[in-house]
Protein backbone atom coordinates (compact mmCIF):
# COMPACT_ATOMS: atom_id res chain seq x y z
CA UNK A 1 0.00 0.00 0.00
CA UNK A 2 1.52 3.33 -1.06
CA UNK A 3 1.15 6.59 0.83
CA UNK A 4 -0.81 7.85 -2.18
CA UNK A 5 -3.22 5.53 -3.99
CA UNK A 6 -5.05 6.78 -7.07
CA UNK A 7 -7.65 4.28 -8.33
CA UNK A 8 -9.57 4.38 -11.63
CA UNK A 9 -9.71 8.15 -11.78
CA UNK A 10 -11.57 9.74 -14.70
CA UNK A 11 -11.92 13.42 -15.40
CA UNK A 12 -13.69 15.04 -18.33
CA UNK A 13 -13.71 18.67 -19.41
CA UNK A 14 -16.77 18.82 -21.62
CA UNK A 15 -15.94 16.57 -24.54
CA UNK A 16 -12.27 16.24 -23.60
CA UNK A 17 -11.26 13.20 -21.60
CA UNK A 18 -8.35 14.69 -19.61
CA UNK A 19 -7.84 11.61 -17.41
CA UNK A 20 -9.06 8.12 -18.20
CA UNK A 21 -8.73 5.23 -15.78
CA UNK A 22 -5.66 6.55 -14.05
CA UNK A 23 -4.13 4.24 -11.48
CA UNK A 24 -1.10 5.35 -9.57
CA UNK A 25 0.56 4.14 -6.43
CA UNK A 26 3.27 6.28 -4.85
CA UNK A 27 5.38 4.53 -2.20
CA UNK A 28 6.35 6.27 1.00
CA UNK A 29 9.73 8.04 1.04
CA UNK A 30 10.31 7.78 -2.70
CA UNK A 31 10.48 10.30 -5.49
CA UNK A 32 7.92 9.48 -8.12
CA UNK A 33 8.18 11.35 -11.41
CA UNK A 34 5.24 11.84 -13.75
CA UNK A 35 6.28 12.69 -17.27
CA UNK A 36 4.45 13.02 -20.54
CA UNK A 37 3.89 15.39 -23.45
CA UNK A 38 2.06 18.71 -23.12
CA UNK A 39 -1.62 18.29 -22.47
CA UNK A 40 -1.19 14.73 -21.21
CA UNK A 41 -3.16 15.50 -18.07
CA UNK A 42 -0.31 15.72 -15.58
CA UNK A 43 -1.42 18.95 -13.93
CA UNK A 44 -5.02 17.77 -14.01
CA UNK A 45 -3.97 14.71 -12.05
CA UNK A 46 -2.26 16.84 -9.40
CA UNK A 47 -5.33 19.06 -9.22
CA UNK A 48 -7.37 15.99 -8.35
CA UNK A 49 -5.04 15.25 -5.45
CA UNK A 50 -5.22 18.64 -3.72
CA UNK A 51 -8.92 19.39 -3.95
CA UNK A 52 -8.69 21.82 -6.84
CA UNK A 53 -10.63 19.40 -9.04
CA UNK A 54 -12.92 16.53 -8.12
CA UNK A 55 -12.58 13.44 -10.33
CA UNK A 56 -15.75 12.25 -12.06
CA UNK A 57 -15.12 8.72 -10.85
CA UNK A 58 -12.47 6.86 -8.90
CA UNK A 59 -10.80 7.32 -5.55
CA UNK A 60 -7.77 9.10 -4.17
CA UNK A 61 -6.43 7.87 -0.86
CA UNK A 62 -3.65 9.60 1.06
CA UNK A 63 -2.20 8.01 4.16
CA UNK A 64 -5.18 5.64 4.27
CA UNK A 65 -7.79 8.44 4.09
CA UNK A 66 -9.78 9.67 1.14
CA UNK A 67 -9.00 13.22 0.01
CA UNK A 68 -12.08 13.50 -2.18
CA UNK A 69 -14.60 16.05 -0.99
CA UNK A 70 -12.09 17.75 1.28
CA UNK A 71 -11.18 21.38 0.86
CA UNK A 72 -7.68 22.36 -0.28
CA UNK A 73 -6.77 23.70 3.16
CA UNK A 74 -7.88 20.46 4.80
CA UNK A 75 -5.80 18.42 2.40
CA UNK A 76 -2.80 20.60 3.15
CA UNK A 77 -3.38 20.06 6.86
CA UNK A 78 -3.32 16.28 6.16
CA UNK A 79 0.27 16.74 5.01
CA UNK A 80 0.24 17.53 1.29
CA UNK A 81 1.95 20.70 0.01
CA UNK A 82 1.96 21.72 -3.59
CA UNK A 83 4.07 23.86 -5.91
CA UNK A 84 2.09 25.14 -8.90
CA UNK A 85 3.07 25.22 -12.55
CA UNK A 86 2.80 29.01 -12.54
CA UNK A 87 4.26 30.24 -9.25
CA UNK A 88 1.66 31.09 -6.62
CA UNK A 89 3.13 33.29 -3.91
CA UNK A 90 1.95 36.25 -1.86
CA UNK A 91 3.13 38.98 -4.19
CA UNK A 92 2.30 41.85 -1.83
CA UNK A 93 4.39 40.41 0.97
CA UNK A 94 8.12 40.23 1.51
CA UNK A 95 9.99 36.95 1.11
CA UNK A 96 10.17 36.53 4.87
CA UNK A 97 6.46 37.23 5.30
CA UNK A 98 5.73 34.68 2.59
CA UNK A 99 7.62 32.12 4.66
CA UNK A 100 5.73 32.94 7.86
CA UNK A 101 2.30 32.03 6.46
CA UNK A 102 2.99 28.31 5.87
CA UNK A 103 4.66 28.11 9.26
CA UNK A 104 1.66 29.68 10.97
CA UNK A 105 -0.68 27.34 9.08
CA UNK A 106 1.39 24.37 10.17
CA UNK A 107 1.55 25.41 13.82
CA UNK A 108 -1.90 26.93 14.33
CA UNK A 109 -4.06 24.98 11.90
CA UNK A 110 -6.61 26.33 9.45
CA UNK A 111 -7.78 29.16 11.74
CA UNK A 112 -6.51 30.61 14.96
CA UNK A 113 -6.89 34.17 16.11
CA UNK A 114 -3.56 35.73 17.09
CA UNK A 115 -4.60 39.33 16.74
CA UNK A 116 -2.55 41.01 19.44
CA UNK A 117 0.75 39.11 19.57
CA UNK A 118 3.50 40.62 17.45
CA UNK A 119 4.75 38.60 14.52
CA UNK A 120 8.29 39.72 15.41
CA UNK A 121 8.02 37.77 18.63
CA UNK A 122 7.55 34.44 16.88
CA UNK A 123 11.27 33.72 17.30
CA UNK A 124 11.02 29.98 16.57
CA UNK A 125 9.12 30.48 13.37
CA UNK A 126 11.45 33.25 12.22
CA UNK A 127 14.46 31.02 12.84
CA UNK A 128 12.95 28.09 10.96
CA UNK A 129 12.07 30.38 8.06
CA UNK A 130 15.58 31.83 7.97
CA UNK A 131 17.14 28.39 7.93
CA UNK A 132 14.92 27.35 5.03
CA UNK A 133 15.79 30.53 3.13
CA UNK A 134 19.47 29.75 3.64
CA UNK A 135 18.90 26.26 2.22
CA UNK A 136 17.44 27.72 -0.98
CA UNK A 137 20.06 30.49 -1.15
CA UNK A 138 17.53 33.26 -0.71
CA UNK A 139 18.41 34.62 2.69
CA UNK A 140 19.83 37.80 1.16
CA UNK A 141 16.40 38.46 -0.37
CA UNK A 142 14.48 38.09 2.87
CA UNK A 143 13.15 41.66 2.88
CA UNK A 144 12.46 41.83 -0.81
CA UNK A 145 8.99 42.44 -2.13
CA UNK A 146 8.28 39.02 -3.62
CA UNK A 147 6.34 40.24 -6.67
CA UNK A 148 9.44 42.00 -7.95
CA UNK A 149 11.55 38.83 -8.12
CA UNK A 150 12.42 36.78 -11.20
CA UNK A 151 10.25 33.82 -12.13
CA UNK A 152 12.96 31.41 -11.07
CA UNK A 153 13.18 33.07 -7.65
CA UNK A 154 9.43 32.94 -7.25
CA UNK A 155 9.57 29.21 -7.90
CA UNK A 156 12.32 28.71 -5.37
CA UNK A 157 10.36 30.74 -2.84
CA UNK A 158 7.23 28.71 -3.46
CA UNK A 159 9.18 25.51 -3.02
CA UNK A 160 10.70 26.82 0.20
CA UNK A 161 7.19 27.71 1.44
CA UNK A 162 6.11 24.12 0.82
CA UNK A 163 9.23 22.51 2.24
CA UNK A 164 9.17 24.57 5.41
CA UNK A 165 5.86 22.92 6.28
CA UNK A 166 7.68 19.60 6.35
CA UNK A 167 4.91 17.87 4.39
CA UNK A 168 4.53 14.11 4.15
CA UNK A 169 3.84 14.43 0.45
CA UNK A 170 5.28 17.19 -1.71
CA UNK A 171 3.76 17.74 -5.14
CA UNK A 172 5.94 19.64 -7.61
CA UNK A 173 4.57 20.80 -10.96
CA UNK A 174 7.57 21.62 -13.14
CA UNK A 175 9.59 23.14 -10.32
CA UNK A 176 12.58 24.08 -12.46
CA UNK A 177 10.80 25.56 -15.49
CA UNK A 178 12.12 29.07 -16.10
CA UNK A 179 15.15 28.57 -13.86
CA UNK A 180 18.74 29.21 -14.86
CA UNK A 181 20.88 26.07 -15.20
CA UNK A 182 22.75 26.80 -11.98
CA UNK A 183 19.52 27.22 -10.04
CA UNK A 184 18.16 24.02 -11.53
CA UNK A 185 21.23 22.17 -10.29
CA UNK A 186 20.87 23.78 -6.87
CA UNK A 187 17.26 22.66 -6.79
CA UNK A 188 18.28 19.09 -7.63
CA UNK A 189 20.86 19.16 -4.84
CA UNK A 190 18.35 20.60 -2.41
CA UNK A 191 15.73 17.97 -3.20
CA UNK A 192 18.35 15.20 -2.90
CA UNK A 193 19.37 16.55 0.46
CA UNK A 194 15.76 16.82 1.62
CA UNK A 195 15.07 13.30 0.46
CA UNK A 196 18.10 11.97 2.32
CA UNK A 197 17.38 13.75 5.58
CA UNK A 198 13.59 13.81 5.91
CA UNK A 199 10.68 11.43 5.82
CA UNK A 200 9.18 12.85 2.69
CA UNK A 201 7.50 11.52 -0.41
CA UNK A 202 7.77 13.59 -3.56
CA UNK A 203 5.66 13.45 -6.70
CA UNK A 204 7.26 15.55 -9.40
CA UNK A 205 6.07 16.57 -12.85
CA UNK A 206 9.00 17.64 -14.98
CA UNK A 207 9.95 18.10 -18.61
CA UNK A 208 13.66 18.44 -17.88
CA UNK A 209 14.91 14.85 -18.15
CA UNK A 210 18.13 15.72 -16.36
CA UNK A 211 16.08 16.61 -13.28
CA UNK A 212 13.88 13.54 -13.66
CA UNK A 213 16.71 11.06 -13.94
CA UNK A 214 18.71 12.71 -11.16
CA UNK A 215 15.92 12.36 -8.65
CA UNK A 216 13.28 9.80 -9.55
CA UNK A 217 13.00 6.38 -7.94
CA UNK A 218 10.10 5.50 -10.21
CA UNK A 219 8.62 7.10 -13.29
CA UNK A 220 5.10 7.05 -14.67
CA UNK A 221 4.58 8.09 -18.27
CA UNK A 222 1.23 9.72 -18.95
CA UNK A 223 -0.11 10.29 -22.45
CA UNK A 224 -3.56 11.51 -23.41
CA UNK A 225 -4.83 11.03 -19.90
CA UNK A 226 -3.71 7.43 -19.48
CA UNK A 227 -0.61 5.99 -17.81
CA UNK A 228 1.37 4.17 -20.48
CA UNK A 229 4.08 2.63 -18.34
CA UNK A 230 5.36 2.80 -14.83
CA UNK A 231 8.86 1.56 -14.13
CA UNK A 232 12.36 2.22 -12.80
CA UNK A 233 14.17 5.11 -14.50
CA UNK A 234 16.68 2.88 -16.25
CA UNK A 235 13.87 0.90 -17.88
CA UNK A 236 12.00 4.00 -18.99
CA UNK A 237 14.84 5.54 -21.00
CA UNK A 238 14.72 3.27 -24.01
CA UNK A 239 11.11 2.17 -23.71
CA UNK A 240 9.44 2.10 -27.14
CA UNK A 241 6.04 3.29 -25.84
CA UNK A 242 7.70 6.32 -24.26
CA UNK A 243 9.45 7.28 -27.45
CA UNK A 244 6.18 6.91 -29.26
CA UNK A 245 4.31 9.14 -26.81
CA UNK A 246 6.90 11.86 -27.00
CA UNK A 247 7.13 11.76 -30.78
CA UNK A 248 3.36 12.09 -30.82
CA UNK A 249 2.52 9.32 -33.28
CA UNK A 250 -0.44 8.27 -31.22
CA UNK A 251 -2.51 11.28 -32.29
Amino acid sequence: MGILEVKDVNKRFGGLKALSDVNLSVQENTVHAIIGPNGAGKSTLLNCLVGKLIPDTGSVMFDGKSVLGRKPFEINQMGISRVFQTPEIFGNLTVMENMMIPLLAKRDGAYRLHAIESIDHEKDLVETAEQMLKDVNMIDKRNMHSASMSRGDKRRLEMAMCLVQNPKLLLLDEPTAGMARADTNNTIDLLKEIKATRDITIAIIEHDMHVVFSLADRITVLAQGTPLVEDLPENIKGHPKVQEAYLGEAH
Binding site: V50, K52, K71, P72, F73, N76, Q77, S81, R82, F84, E88, I89, F90, G91, N92, L93, E97, M100, I101, P102, L104, A105, K106, D108, G109, A110, Y111, L113, H114, A115, I116, E117, S118, I119, D120, E122, M161, Q165
Partner: peptide, 25 residues
Protein backbone atom coordinates in the same frame (compact mmCIF):
# COMPACT_ATOMS: atom_id res chain seq x y z
CA UNK B 1 -1.54 45.14 11.84
CA UNK B 2 1.64 43.66 13.31
CA UNK B 3 0.12 40.37 14.44
CA UNK B 4 0.01 36.97 12.73
CA UNK B 5 -3.68 37.70 12.15
CA UNK B 6 -2.83 40.95 10.37
CA UNK B 7 -0.26 39.18 8.24
CA UNK B 8 -2.82 36.54 7.30
CA UNK B 9 -5.29 39.24 6.26
CA UNK B 10 -2.65 40.76 4.00
CA UNK B 11 -2.00 37.31 2.57
CA UNK B 12 -5.71 37.03 1.80
CA UNK B 13 -5.51 40.30 -0.12
CA UNK B 14 -2.46 39.07 -1.96
CA UNK B 15 -3.39 35.51 -2.99
CA UNK B 16 -6.27 33.57 -1.48
CA UNK B 17 -5.50 30.60 -3.65
CA UNK B 18 -2.01 30.23 -2.25
CA UNK B 19 -3.40 30.63 1.24
CA UNK B 20 -5.85 27.77 0.79
CA UNK B 21 -3.21 25.40 -0.55
CA UNK B 22 -1.02 26.46 2.36
CA UNK B 23 -3.51 25.12 4.86
CA UNK B 24 -5.41 28.18 6.01
CA UNK B 25 -9.13 28.76 5.70
Amino acid sequence: FRSPFGLTLRAIKSNQNRLRYTGMN
